[in-house]
Every structure is written in C-alpha cells, then in structure tokens.
Design a protein around this nucleic acid. Structure first.
Length: 489
RNA sequence: GUGGCUAUGGUAUAAUGGUUAUUACUCCGGUUUGUGGUACCGGCAAUACGAGUUCAAUUCUCGUUAGCCACCCCA
C-alpha cells in the first residue's frame, strides 16, 4: 500500500536501459498518485475536521520547525563545546571558582529590579510569562541576577570572602536573530563577591582573557570606569547640560535619550552625534579621587598580567547595576565600532544590597559561547588555529551472530582497562566495518569472527600495512598497550 | 522593533513558463557469501508554505514563514 512497497518491487526488476525508462515512468506516475492522495486526504480532513493516524501516514508528515532564534547543538560541533567547557572548568579549578547554576526560571521582578527598567534587555527582550498560579515568571536573560539572589538566599555572606563562582548555561533574549545572535544562547561566566579591591577586578578580567587565549583566541579588552553612583550622577548632570546645548546636532533618538538614558548617547554611531560625543565631557574626569585611583590600580594589574586593553571613555554598559570598572572583550583584529563583542563584565557593588542582602561589593563577566565559536571557526578556516580531533584509534569489527554477542562485553572490558574502541553493531558485513574503521582513521582494527570466538582469540589488523596477527583474548590488553605506546612515540 | 537580500534532496549545487528537475558529497545496499582506503552498479532523497496570473508555474506577481546582512541593542 505504501509507496515504499512499490519501490521495493521496482528495485527487483532488472536494470537494463529499457527498464530504466519504465521505472522513470512509474516514478512519475507514483508521484502523481501520491500527490492526488495527499490532496484528497487533506480535503477529507478539512471536511470532517478529524485527523486519523492513517491520514497522517498518507499525507506527508511535516517535521515541526525549530522555533525562531533557536539552534540545536549538534555532534558535529562537539569539538568546540567540549573543549570550551573543559577549558572553562580547568580555568575555574585553577583559580578557585566553585560551580553554581541558578535556575532558568526566576521571579520576573528579580531581573527587572537588578538589570533595570528602561534597559532593552528587560523591556524588549526578556521572556516573561504568567505561571499557572498567576505569578510573573522570567526566563533568565543573564546570570548575574540569579547568582546574586542565590548568594543572598544561601547565606554566602558568612563564607570566607571573596566568594568565587562560575557558571555555564543557556540564556534567553527575544531579540531578532542574526549571525552569532540567538534567542537561546550559551554563556560562561564568573562572579566574585565580597571584596572591593582592584586585584579582584583584574583577576576576573584575567580569567576571561586567559580562557579565550587557551582556546587560541587573542583578544583585546576595552575598558572604562563609570565610578560610583554619586560620581555618575554628577557626571550625568554635566553631560545632560552639555548635550542640551548641542541638541540640534543630535539624531532624533539621541534627543530622546537625553532625558531617558543620557549615557547611551555616548554609544551612538551617527556621524553628527559622533562629533558631539568627541567634545563631550568624559566620565573619567568626573570620577572621585578614590574611584580614579581604583581604576588606575586595575590597569596596573592588567599591565602586570600582560592583558592587552584599550581605554574607551565612551564605554557604558547596557545593564543598570554596574559601578566602577566596566569592560568588553573583542577579538584582536575587530574594529572598535564593530558589534562582535565576545563578552563583557564589570563591577556591581550595589546589586546585592539592592536585592536585600548585606552591602556586598562584587564583580564578574559573561562570555557568549556562540560568538566564541563563530570567531574560533573563522580562525581555523584562516589556518590560524589548529583543530585537533581525538578519534578512536581502534575499531572492533564483529562477524557472525556469536561474535556480535561477545562484542559489547569485550568493549566494556577494554574500557574498564582504559582502552576505547569504536564499533558498529548496525553492520554485519566485515567489509562495511573495515570501511568505517578506515573512515574514522583507526590505526588498528580488531576482528572477531566465529573462529576467533571458539578459539578465544582475536585478530589485530594493522590498518596501514594490512598485517594481521592472531592473539589470545586474554593478552589483548597488553598487546594493544604495546602498539599504542609505539604509536605515541 | 526597522530596512535590504535570499529560499531547489541531509549538505553543496545546475536548469527551465510545457512531457522523467542536473550534478557531486553524505547515507543505505551490491560487484559470489571472513578483509578497508580506489573503481563500478543500484537505492533513498528536493523546487519552504499559501494565493494569484496562465491552457500550463519550480520559474512571473503578491502574501506568509524562515535564514542571512545592516540598524537598534547586546553576548
């Protein structure tokens, strides 16, 4: 009944040219029939408004599409994801950061309060919905707020300070998708609570920088200080005053920003706005003596650590909770104005208190992993980074029912002894399995057939030379060790 | 959220207002049943969706959706 059956019948017919023509005719006929059937069924369905299982089978079932801005992480990219995770893990172990992971869902007010009303992240991009009990739930658009909440909620104030944590996971922002920008994306982040000291700022920046460097990505850090909230208030008054005098030169959006969010004007890329911005008072000049000294100290530390950075007086960040040090991480080559920031962070000394905790200074960063991959890929394409895949070097091919039966056991025994072998139980022919071994660039292939099962032996085939030897299964581990050692040399 | 470009098998592509939609890769199977890297043979698999113009649309027009790019913002 199904088209599949027809094709099997067809396949049995011989393959001369004449039948090829016939087949083709049949094929179109089949297609036409298929189309008709589908149309009919759809019509029927529309009339009866009922969908039965058979309908679904006859009509072409549509695969539900991926939601907009969502992306599958696929095995083909595992090299990137695994390596990033391992690097992050090693990095954080070395620097004494503990793993933390707040939930995806939080009370929406947590994000609104911490990130701030008026920011795009909250106003436009946050996924908010009503839970079954009517409460407003937000999907985390960033990590810091949730972690700060956890810090307060779990009494981490009474732990030795600083409390250092790192996290890894999905974040959600309902933005328009673009290259390196998804609605669900991954971030790696570090947070550092409880100490107000330039050394701590520098440490977190160093972790971010060295994480990327470990992956082979050289970066440049744009850095600025926006001072304490008092400093900023004074500066904003000055800035607004200045901008008002230049109002006529500004773009429409910036004019609105003057009253709404004047710091954002500094980010505007409009030509006439740029000219105004260049002349504008710089926040650095409005920092209090202590903030200025603090910032200078941070830079000294960075010099000492050989972390490359560039001062960027117009850098203000999109989230409300930042104080003092703020920075963004870009690839070495990228232009100042480009938007491919790999990550960003800064100090947020007021956030914990805002969330009802003891006054606790803190700082941290987040790195966008999809963007890291984007840059990383490019570097590999350009041949600037090598991509090393570690593939299984040994393959186990089985032949015959009895051998198949033994396969998993042998694989598990070897695994317990620290030797990983590839296999494919979906194949029965030796030829197909050798093909796979070859495709996976295995150096050796173990062959287990009827005879070997009976004799308790196994064949080790050298894939390059084709030389085979028969060894006792008990001696397999030591034999393989020898061979792998040789290869390593 | 705004604007521009695009949409053909899983991937990458060719072509056309008309009768079997091209090719390559991948995948599955085979070339005498226990030996791979080559070759040969066969198979699976596509014009995003919906409407309009037309005798006829995969091709032209419109809408929808999605992707890409730029803006906004950010990671």
């Amino acid at each position: 009944m199904t088209p599949k059956k027809k094709t099997t019948i067809k396949a049995k017919s011989s393959s001369t040219k004449k039948t090829a023509v016939k087949r083709a005719v049949k094929k179109t006929a089949k297609k036409a029939v298929k189309k008709k059937q589908v149309k009919k069924k759809i019509a029927v369905r529309a009339e009866s408004k009922e969908i039965t299982a058979s309908d679904i089978r006859v009509s072409k079932v549509k695969t539900p599409a991926l939601l907009r801005g969502m992306k599958d992480v696929l095995p083909k990219d595992q090299y990137f994801w695994k390596k990033m995770y391992r690097t992050a893990e090693d990095m954080c172990d070395a620097y004494g950061y503990g793993y933390i992971e707040p939930p995806v869902l939080e009370d929406a007010s947590l994000f609104i309060r911490s990130i701030g009303r008026g920011t795009d992240v909250v106003d436009k991009e946050m996924y908010v919905f009503e839970d079954k009990d009517g409460s407003k739930v937000g999907m985390r658009p960033e990590f810091t707020a949730g972690i700060a909440r956890a810090f307060v909620g779990h009494g981490m104030t009474s732990l030795p300070q600083p409390v250092k944590v790192w996290c890894w996971g999905q974040l959600f922002r309902h933005d328009r998708p673009q290259a390196g920008r998804y609605r669900q994306f991954h971030q790696f982040g570090c947070e550092n609570f409880g100490v107000h000291d330039p050394a701590i700022d520098a440490e977190t920046i160093g972790v971010a920088y060295n994480f990327l460097l470990d992956l082979g990505i050289k970066t440049n850090i744009f850095i600025n200080s926006i001072g304490t909230s008092d400093d900023r208030q004074n500066y904003i008054i000055e800035l607004v005053g200045y901008l008002r005098t230049k109002r006529s030169y500004l773009c429409e959006k910036c004019r609105k920003r003057i009253s709404k969010n004047p710091l954002r004007v500094l980010d505007c890329k409009g030509e006439s706005c740029q000219a105004v911005i260049e002349e504008a008072p710089q926040i650095i000049d409005w920092l209090s003596e202590s903030s200025k000294n603090y910032f200078v100290k941070v830079l000294e530390y960075l010099d000492e650590m050989e972390v490359p950075y560039a001062l960027k007086p117009t850098l203000v960040r999109g989230l409300d909770y930042y104080t003092e040090t703020v920075y963004e991480i870009y690839t070495e080559e990228s232009e100042e104005g480009s938007q491919d920031a790999l990550g960003g962070g800064g100090r947020y000394d007021l956030l914990v208190e805002q969330l009802g905790g003891q006054p606790t200074p803190a700082c941290g960063f987040g790195i966008g992993l999809e963007r890291v991959i984007l840059v990383w890929r490019k570097l590999i394409e350009e041949g600037k980074i090598e991509q090393k895949e570690d593939l299984p070097k040994i393959f186990l091919a089985q032949l015959g029912e009895q051998a198949r039966m033994k396969t998993l056991r042998i694989i598990e025994n070897l695994r317990r002894q620290g030797i990983i072998v590839g296999h494919n139980l979906g194949k029965t022919s030796l030829k197909a399995q050798l093909e796979l071994a070859d495709k996976q660039k295995c150096a050796y292939c173990l062959i287990l057939g009827q005879k070997e099962v009976q004799d308790k032996t196994i064949i080790i085939r050298d894939m390059e030379s084709g030389i085979q030897e028969i060894v006792d299964q008990k001696k397999l581990k030591t034999e393989l060790d020898k061979k792998l050692k040789k290869m390593a040399v």
